[in-house]
Amino acid sequence: MTELKNLDLSQDANAQRVVKNETVSVEFAAAEGELMSLEGPNRYVRGDALITGSTGDRWVVSRERFDAKYLPEDTALAHGAPGAYRNRPAVVLAKQMNEAFSLARSAGGGDVLHGAAGDWIMQYAPGDYGVVQAARFAKVYRLAD
Results as ranks from 00 to 15, higher is better:
25 S>K: 12
25 S>T: 15
26 V>Y: 14
26 V>W: 13
27 E>A: 15
27 E>H: 02
28 F>D: 09
28 F>C: 09
29 A>Q: 02
30 A>E: 13
30 A>G: 14
31 A>C: 04
31 A>M: 06
34 E>P: 01
35 L>C: 05
36 M>A: 10
40 G>W: 03
42 N>E: 07
44 Y>I: 00
45 V>A: 11
45 V>Y: 07
46 R>S: 12
47 G>I: 05
48 D>V: 01
49 A>I: 00
50 L>N: 02
51 I>Q: 08
52 T>Q: 14
53 G>A: 07
53 G>S: 14
53 G>E: 12
54 S>P: 00
54 S>M: 12
55 T>L: 10
55 T>G: 01
55 T>M: 09
57 D>Q: 12
58 R>W: 06
58 R>H: 11
59 W>D: 03
60 V>W: 01
61 V>D: 08
61 V>C: 11
62 S>G: 08
62 S>D: 11
65 R>L: 13
65 R>D: 15
65 R>F: 07
66 F>S: 09
66 F>T: 07
66 F>N: 08
67 D>I: 04
68 A>M: 08
70 Y>I: 03
71 L>M: 10
71 L>W: 00
71 L>S: 13
71 L>A: 13
72 P>Y: 05
72 P>V: 05
73 E>G: 00
73 E>Y: 00
73 E>L: 10
74 D>P: 07
75 T>P: 13
78 A>T: 15
78 A>P: 12
79 H>Q: 13
80 G>P: 07
81 A>K: 12
82 P>E: 15
83 G>M: 02
83 G>K: 02
87 N>Q: 11
88 R>A: 11
88 R>L: 13
88 R>Q: 15
89 P>S: 04
90 A>G: 06
90 A>V: 11
91 V>H: 05
91 V>I: 12
91 V>S: 14
92 V>S: 09
93 L>R: 04
95 K>A: 07
96 Q>S: 06
97 M>A: 05
97 M>P: 00
99 E>L: 03
99 E>S: 11
100 A>N: 09
